[in-house]
Design a protein around this nucleic acid. Sequence first.
DNA 1: TCTTAGCACTCATCCATCAGGAGTGCTAAA
DNA 2: TTTAGCACTCCTGATGGATGAGTGCTAAGA
Lengths: 344, 344
Amino acid sequence: MDHPVPLDVRKQQILKAVVADYTRTGVPVGSQALALHLATWSSATIRNELAMLSEVGYLIQPHTSAGRVPSDLGYRYYVDFLMEEEEVPQAVRRQMEPFFAALPSGLEEILEVAATALAVVTDGVSLVTGPRALGSKVKHLDLVSLDADHALLVLILEGNLVRQHAIALGAPAEQTALSSLAFELNVELAGLNALAIAEIAAEGESGALRAVVLADIVSFMSSVDAQQDALVVHDGVRNLLRQPEFVDVELLHQVIEVVEEERMLAALIAQLQLDRGIQIMIGRENGLVELSRCSLVLTTYRAGGDRRGTIGVLGPTRMLYGQVAPRVRYVAQRVGRALERVLS
Amino acid sequence: MDHPVPLDVRKQQILKAVVADYTRTGVPVGSQALALHLATWSSATIRNELAMLSEVGYLIQPHTSAGRVPSDLGYRYYVDFLMEEEEVPQAVRRQMEPFFAALPSGLEEILEVAATALAVVTDGVSLVTGPRALGSKVKHLDLVSLDADHALLVLILEGNLVRQHAIALGAPAEQTALSSLAFELNVELAGLNALAIAEIAAEGESGALRAVVLADIVSFMSSVDAQQDALVVHDGVRNLLRQPEFVDVELLHQVIEVVEEERMLAALIAQLQLDRGIQIMIGRENGLVELSRCSLVLTTYRAGGDRRGTIGVLGPTRMLYGQVAPRVRYVAQRVGRALERVLS
DNA sequence: TCTTAGCACTCATCCATCAGGAGTGCTAAA
DNA sequence: TTTAGCACTCCTGATGGATGAGTGCTAAGA
C-alpha cells in the first residue's frame, strides 16, 4: 500500500478497464471482453498483461478458467491513481432536493435526512455519526418541574443540540425557584463546557439546590460528550440486497449484524483520520473480518467551528467509487451548510 | 375468520401438534412424526385427520409427498383457541434488565431502547411508534436567540417530548425580549394544545413579535402532532436472516424494503384498533403483499393519560406466538412504566 | 362404525455423469 | 513484441436414475 508496484500505461489502462467492467457487470472479466473495449491490442496481448497483473497481486482469478477480478490491492491502485470522479449529475441533485428542502432544525433530524438522501443516491448503506463534541458548550438551559422533588434539565448546546435529563433534586423545589435558578445559570454558564462548569460547581457549597443541579449538568454534559461519538445513523440496508454479491446469505448476515450493532462501526469510524477529504477503505483495509468484502467511502462534515462528524457509505467492494465519492462529498457539504444555518 | 370451522378435540390436538412441530423445525410435518408425539393414535388415523384438516383449509401440503404446514387460517385457529402463553422466563427478564436499568428520560431514547430489547428477546424485527399525540399539550417553552432576527423555539410537550424549531422573526429581537416573551407565554400556554393556542393567536394583533412566535408555535405543534404517528423505530432486521424462510433473498428484500420504508408500516399500524390487548395479524391478514409470509404481534403501551403508542414484533408466519405475545406485552408494560416516571 | 396395517404411488431431493463453453497459458510464427 | 492457434482446465447447467419420505386408498380387525 505504501509502495504500490508501478505499472506502465498499458497495464494501467487494462486494470482500469477490468475495474470498470467488473463493477458494471459483477462477472469476472476475460481477455476477449477487454479486447472489445481496448481495440488497440489483441486478446492474446491482453492475456499476457492480465497474467502479469495477477502476478503482482492486482487481479485475482476465482478459478482456472474464469476471468479476472480486481483484488483489494487492485482497487486500491485504481482509487489512488486511475479513478476519475464523475461530477454529481443534475438529475441526482434534483433527486436529493426534496430531502434538503424542508430541512428541520434539530441536529439528529438533519443527520437522519442526510442518511436517507445518501442511501438513495449511492445504492449503499449510508452511515452518519454525530459531530464530535470535543467539550460542547452550553448555549441555553432550562429547568422544568416534574414533581415535588424532580426536575427536567433541558440543555441546548452549541449547534442546537437539545438534550434533556431528569434530576432528583434531593429536596422539594417549586417551579419559581427552578426558573430563577435557570435564569441565574444561563448568565453564568453560557459558552462554557463541562470542564469549566465543573470548576464553578466545585466552588459552591454542596447540598443546596444549585449545587445539585450544577453537579448534574456536569455529569450529564460529560456523558453527552462521550455518547456523541457513538451516535450512528444508518439507512439503506435494502440496497445491499440488490447487489449480486449478497446472494450469499451468510455474508449478508455478517454485514447487517455489524451495521445494526452500531458500536462496532462507531469504533471503526473513530479511528479514522479526519481532514483527509474523502477517505476510502477497501475490503480488508477496514480491519473488520465481517466487512472484508465491503468498502467504505467516508468524509467529514463540518458542524461549525471545529466540530466535525463523519458521513459516508458502506457498500460491496465492487462499488462505483468514481461516482460514490463525489456524492458523499456533496451530501457532506449540504449537511455542513444546513448545520451552519442552525448554528450559534 | 368470523366463522371458523369447528374442530373436535382430536383434530384440535393434531392441529396444535402440527403448529408446534412446524414452528420448531421449519420442515413440513408428516403423520409419522406426529404419531410419536400423539401416541394415542396410529399414523394412519392421523393421516385421515390431516386430510380433513387440509380440506377445511387449516393445513397446506407443499407438494404431494410432503408433510403438512399450517395455513394462515390454521395459525388463526391456533392463536384464537389453542395457543398457550408461556410466562416470560426469569432468564429473559434478566436479559432485558440492562436495557431498562439505565433508562434515559427522553421519549425517543426510551422507545429506541425498548425496540432493541424486544428484538433481542423475540428474534424478530421490533417495531415501535411514538405515542399518538392527539393534540399534545405544552408544558414549557423557551426562546433562544440565534442571530438578530432568528430564534430557536424549544417546546417541551407533555410526556417530556422536546422539540425545537427555528423561527424567522421578521424583525430584530434581543434575547432579553425573547426571554420575557417566553416567560409570558409559559404562563398563558401551559397545558394548552395547538387548537387552543390557535384561538389565542387569532386574538392578538398581527406583525408583533408575539404574534409571529404564536403563529409558529401553532403550525409547529400541528406538524409535530401529525408526525408523531409516523415515527417508527425498528431494530432486529438481523434476526430475520437466521430464519430459514428468508434464504429466499427476494422475499427478504421485500420485507426489509417495507421495514426501512417506515411509512408503509406506520399506515398499517395506524389502522389498528387499539385497546384490544395483544393483536396478532397472521400472513395475508396485514394486507401488504410484501408481508404476506410474515406475522405481526402488536400491542399498545400507555404513555400516561390517554396517550398510547404501538409496540410489537414482525417475524415469519412460522413464529412462536405463545412465546412472543407475552414478551411483547411485558416490554409494553415496562415502556409504560418508564414513561410514567418521565411524565408530567 | 371407527381404527389401523399394508401397499402402491407420487414427487422432491440427492448425486453422479456428461456436454458445452468460457477463458486460460503456452507455443510458434509474423 | 505481438498475436493466431490450440490444448487444457474447470465451472455451469442439464439429464437421469436411485432414494426415501409421505401420502391416499383398501381391506381387515375391533
